[in-house]
Amino acid sequence: MKDARPLATALADPISVLEFTPDDWTSLLTIARAERLDGSLAYRLADLPLPDVVARALEDARAQAAFDRTQALWEVEMAHRALSPAGIEPILLKGSAFAFAGLPAGLGRLIGDLDILVPRDRLDDAEAALIRAGFEWVKDNEYDQGYYRQWMHELPPLIHRDRETMIDVHHTILPLTARRTPDAAALIEASVEIAPGLRVLNAADMIVHAVTHLLADGDLAGGLRNLWDIDRLLRLFASTPGFWDELDERAALHEMRAPLGLALRLTNRLYATPVPPRLAGYDRMRDLLFVRRMLARDGWGRPIRPVNRLGFYIRSHWIRMPPVMLARHLWTKAKAK
């Protein structure tokens, strides 16, 4: 396999794997593991007639995903117990939200750290409550601590001293230094309660957040995985009357209208997600760069297309902070090494 396209195709159209050769299977498993999509793939292919060895490998991936899910839900419970005495109702983000809310995007999905969103004026209380519950700083040097607190959209990461699990406490969904400024208050205002004391973003905001995560906050590492979230969520939410109009409005409110269009075109291209052309806009030449970046992995799981990757790495810093600040940041980081 020359790139990760067969993985995207297998996810979107599972029947495509029925024509695989033995070598194709080996490459697909390797690429899926490298992109951390093996759990999602395993659920997608679960009902197909597969070679025994492949079926066993995918069964193991599903067992792993089920175990991770149990762990992730337990972390949600722990955060809930830590924060509810302080009267804070955390909004679950990303993987934990999908798992807790039982959304199809959560099926087999890797769940890393627990990400939660709290109102900015409750940030100090949330931090104090989590520290009381046994969480500790990972980065305790002065520059990192100061940097996070002044410029980032989240507290410096906290790790629980016994369970060794990490929690990221956000007060908005993009760094304060980024070019775009989502409306954090509106995100919180429109959030939905899914269990007593626990919330998730509403449908449209959930898409907007997935788009910021994919396109406005990083170098597209894990891009196929983040785009797969968008595909799964859109296919579910699209059946709600008025969803696309609301998505249009919310994206505009959060200054994410253009990235939303790009994300819709990308998910349509790679996963054949049905999207309204009115929101997606026209294909552009630039879209191809994003597609090539997301598929930049060979059949051995190795990263390929170094120039394209470097371009996106530079872009990730460029969109995250103004140039002078970037220079100062890189200088401080370089000196520390």
């Binding site: 033995p22 299977w25 080996t26 498993l29 390797t30 593991r33 490298a34 070679p51 025994d52 060895v53 492949v54 066993r56 490998a57 051995w300 799981g301 190795r302």
Partner: peptide
């Protein structure tokens, strides 16, 4: 069935390390 389900690989940590003072890095799934 001819299907390996686990991939291990070794390669240079940097491209030029394949030839110039070669070094081996371990990798895989």
């Amino acid at each position: 069935d001819g299907i390996a389900t686990v991939t291990a690989r070794i390669g240079p940590p940097r491209p030029w390390r394949r030839w110039i003072r070669p070094q081996v890095e371990i990798g895989g799934d």
